[in-house]
């Protein structure tokens, strides 16, 4: 995983609560056995006027001009502002994969669904929780100013605006450590292989029926 370093990025707004993973990446695209290439179908049903199926050439599709991410001013956005309970629904990691493949590195919302929130960290997207009031402000600002950008500093745990507002956010120290240093969690866990084996052995003795 890449190290998560401080950066400034263009912001796009997704002004809708309860955005579910079926909306983020519709199921017909889950048939892929790969991890990449989902970005062109991010928000597919909202983003295009025609119905999307795997293998279609995105250049031949009809974009929905009304959809927010299709607006010229948000092209190249790396930070997504969202509303409450973002990412609810299925456990599909294809949802964060598609956001990442599209170019998003950070999602800011007042709350996230648990599994989605977890999945983001695993692949190097940073989900940030800020209060609904702060998000109201940020939505207002991004709507008002073209080219609106935010600076994200994970080490310092801050989101900064260009006019000097700095918002602090919470993040679990272990997750932060993994992201900042680009660590492979499986590798880290395997360093404890002996401990896992001991635990397993003990369990095998106490509850042998689990091991048949």
């Amino acid at each position: 995983m890449e190290k998560f370093q401080p950066f400034s990025g263009l912001v796009a707004p997704m002004d809708r609560a309860n955005v579910d993973t079926d909306a983020i990446i519709p199921k017909q695209f889950l048939k892929s056995i790969k991890r990449s290439g989902f970005g062109q179908n991010l928000f597919d049903e909202w983003r295009y006027l025609d119905h999307g199926e795997p293998g279609m050439d995105a250049a031949q599709r009809q974009p929905n001009p009304e959809f927010v991410l299709n607006k010229l001013r948000y092209q190249g956005a790396q930070i997504l502002l969202a509303r409450a309970n973002f990412g609810c629904g299925s456990s599909r990691e294809h949802a964060p994969w598609s956001l990442q493949d599209y170019g998003f590195r950070v999602i800011i919302a007042p709350s996230f669904a648990d599994i989605f929130f977890n999945n983001c960290f695993k692949i190097g997207i940073l989900p940030i929780i800020l209060s609904a009031e702060i998000l109201d402000q940020l939505f207002e600002q991004v709507n008002a100013a073209e080219g609106y950008a935010l600076t994200i500093d994970l080490q310092a745990q801050t989101v900064s605006t260009s006019n000097g507002d700095v918002f602090a956010f919470e993040v679990d120290s272990f997750r932060k450590h993994c992201l900042v240093n680009g660590l492979d969690e499986i590798g880290l866990t395997l360093e404890k292989a002996e401990k896992i084996k001991q635990f397993e052995q003990q369990r095998r003795e106490q509850q042998p029926w689990l091991f048949t």
Binding site: R35, S91, E93, I115, K122
Partner: peptide
């Protein structure tokens, strides 16, 4: 429920 990275994590560890 878990995501695919976690599926891999459980498989491996």
């Amino acid at each position: 429920g878990i995501g695919t990275s976690e599926v891999e994590h459980v498989l491996a560890t």
